[in-house]
């Protein structure tokens, strides 16, 4: 197992590079308190609107707060929203999709029609509408992204379960007289997981992007807590004099999303039996 792990890394640059990027961002978030040279929220008017220097790697904002430190702390917000929302979406969407695919019939019809409705609607607009009425903030943002992303998980889980339930070993367990819940949990689900793993990685990337867009519109975590989208919006007005206020957090978003995308692409190549070599 250990050997094959290194073999995978050697043969899949996507997983390697994506993994390194994602790990870097996770470490930056976890160690923000240690690495960050300045406090992310305390005002320091003397140092306001500085350009990048050795003292402030990415310059400072209008209140004299260090942009680099705020980007590090912003990683905490961004990752927390992404991981929480995708976990909830996976749980809800995965269960719904598995039930729909396994039991078919009326259950399937009802669940999939609801999914169709949710998917018939641009995700960002749905999220904006939900948030604008419910109000912004960390938990509302997380739950909204979870609601929006539950539908794609339902689709993937259903398709995967549909494929597995037709396989001979499932037919065999049915012939042996196993109860259907047991077949679903023990035999179908474990074999239906790999498309979901790929979907998780790609959805994390989307969740980071959505969090950023919604924070940009002011619907994310409330200030002074730093969030990347909000920081870009703050920098928008001062683009001409202090471009790094927007450039820094934007780079952070791009790196994080790139990491999750590469990881997802690499995992898909690895887990898809049709693409696996040797």
């Amino acid at each position: 197992m250990k050997q094959s792990f290194w073999k995978v890394l050697k043969h899949s640059p996507s997983i390697l590079i994506g993994g390194v990027l994602v790990l870097t961002v996770i470490l930056a978030a976890l160690l923000a308190g240690v690495i960050a040279p300045y406090d992310p929220v305390t005002f320091n008017p003397v140092d306001r609107l500085q350009n990048p220097s050795f003292k402030h790697f990415l310059g400072t904002d209008i209140f004299g707060r260090d942009t680099f430190s705020r980007v590090l702390y912003g990683a905490q917000t961004s990752l927390a929203v992404a991981f929480l929302s995708v976990s909830i979406a996976l749980l809800v969407g995965g269960i719904a999709g598995a039930l729909a695919g396994f039991y078919r019939g009326l259950t399937d019809t009802i669940i999939m029609r609801i999914t169709d409705i949710l998917l018939a609607f641009p995700a960002v607009l749905l999220a904006i509408a939900l948030l604008a009425f419910a109000g912004g903030g960390f938990w509302n943002l997380t739950l909204t992204i979870a609601v929006v992303y539950a539908a794609p998980f339902t689709r993937v889980a259903r398709a995967s379960v549909l494929r597995v339930r037709e396989e001979v070993f499932v037919e065999a367990s049915r012939a042996l007289g196993l109860r259907s819940q047991l077949i679903l949990l023990r035999h179908v689900l474990p074999n239906a997981l790999s498309p979901l793993i790929v979907e998780i990685s790609l959805r994390l990337a989307f969740a980071i992007l959505s969090e950023a867009s919604l924070s940009y519109l002011g619907l994310g975590p409330q200030p002074p807590a730093p969030s990347w989208g909000q920081m870009i919006a703050d920098g928008r007005q001062l683009l001409e004099t202090s471009p790094w206020m927007s450039l820094g957090p934007g780079l952070a978003i791009t790196i994080t999303v790139l990491g999750f995308n590469l990881l997802g692409d690499g995992l898909r190549d690895l887990l898809d039996p049709r693409l696996r070599k040797g």
């Binding site: 928008r236 683009l239 934007g250 791009t254 790196i255």
Partner: peptide
Amino acid sequence: ALLGIAAPSFWIAILFVLVFSL
């Protein structure tokens, strides 16, 4: 392509404004 997919569109918009407008 990888970068284009990863970078948020509103940030790309701001980059364009920075370069092509300002």
